[in-house]
Amino acid sequence: MMLDIENLHARVEDKPILQGIDLQVSPGEVHAIMGPNGSGKSTLSHVLAGRSGYEVTSGTVTYRGQNLLDMAPEERAREGVFLAFQYPVEIPGVSNIYLLKAALNAQRKHRGESEVDAMDFLRLVKEKIRSLDLDEQFLYRGVNEGFSGGEKKRNEILQMAILEPRLCILDETDSGLDIDALKVVADGVNALRTAERSFILVTHYQRLLDYIKPDFVHVLAQGRIVKSGDASLALELEKKGYGWIEQEMAAVA
């Protein structure tokens, strides 16, 4: 099992956000997590990446047999968990290529490997950057500094492609992208799909899933997964809207 979430509860300050999430992700699977605003989608991705400010009040998260919640954010990253941010941070003064290299070397050091060879690294980065339709100059600019929304998201995918994580969590990666940028991002993600690598796509809209076909779709509402299905569930949601789910929940209650 790549990831096993059981009965996860989490809150921000005194406000409960996640109220009993259960989710199993096997290697190679793509899971889409959809839901209305405020359903807890982003909280789930942040809790998995280890962001502070969230208190896990009960439940467990097991990542490849380890207790993920016990690990510091940087350990999670080095162990292969990658969060593509909804709003990637701008860091003027540190070049994009420097961050890529620092991140890769942190991971390699963790695995007991030597630092990446400078020439090999450049070759790797240049190859990846072309496939994401980004200019090479982009590497020498400050991290995300002055990047457009689309460039920031592509930069997240570039980092992902260089770091080759085991579990990729994409937090609303489609938000703010026009259709061309969305296709580039989706192609980047699809190129990374392997039998071992798993993805969790957190999204409000179905349209990302036209380009990245999920194995499973889960609907999150009020901090719980209220419905799961295959890719067709996303289409149904697109047609009927989230109100339909909420009505169903009300009927059950």
Binding site: A72, P73, I91, P92, V94, L99, A106, L163
Partner: peptide
């Protein structure tokens, strides 16, 4: 800081990197 940590950078390096970056601009 969290952004850098989420890329595998330890917190001390992350803080130093951001401080350096602020000055380096």
């Amino acid at each position: 800081i969290f952004y850098l940590e989420s890329r595998g950078v330890d917190p001390v390096s992350a803080r130093n990197m951001l401080t350096f970056a602020f000055a380096n601009t």
